[in-house]
Amino acid sequence: MEIALSFLIGLFFTVAIYLLLSRSLIRMLLGIAIIGNGVNLLIFTIGRVTREVPPIVPSGEYAPLETIANPLPQALILTAIVIGFSLFAFLLVLTYRAYQELDADNTDTMRVAEPEDSPRPPLSY
C-alpha cells in the first residue's frame, strides 16, 4: 500500500512541477493546488498506513483498546489543507486581479515591477 501511494505521490509531484515550470499563471495555480495535495498525501503515507480504526478512546478508558490509525498526520493534513486552501484562494483572486489590471497571465509579459527595458543606472561617480 505504501509503495503504491509513493508512486502516486511521485506522479502528483511530477505533474505539479511540470505545471509550475510553465509561464502561464493559470497552469502555475493548478500546479500549486496539485503540489499541495501531493504533500498532504506524503504526510499521510509517512505517518504509516495503519488499520482504519478511528483514534477514539471509549468512555471510561484512558487509552484506545486496539491498534488505531495515527491521528497526528491527519491533524497535520487538516491544518495544511486549510492553510493551502486559503492561500490558494488568495492567489487565485490575486492572479485574476493581475490579469484584469495588467492584462497579463504570463510571467514573461508581467514586467511592471521589473521593466524589461529598464534604463541603465547613471554612470557618474
Partner: peptide
C-alpha cells in the same frame, strides 16, 4: 499595478 505584479511573484 506594480503592487499586483510584485505580489504575484512574491506569493507564488
Amino acid at each position: 499595478k506594480i503592487q499586483l505584479d510584485g505580489a504575484v511573484k512574491y506569493g507564488f
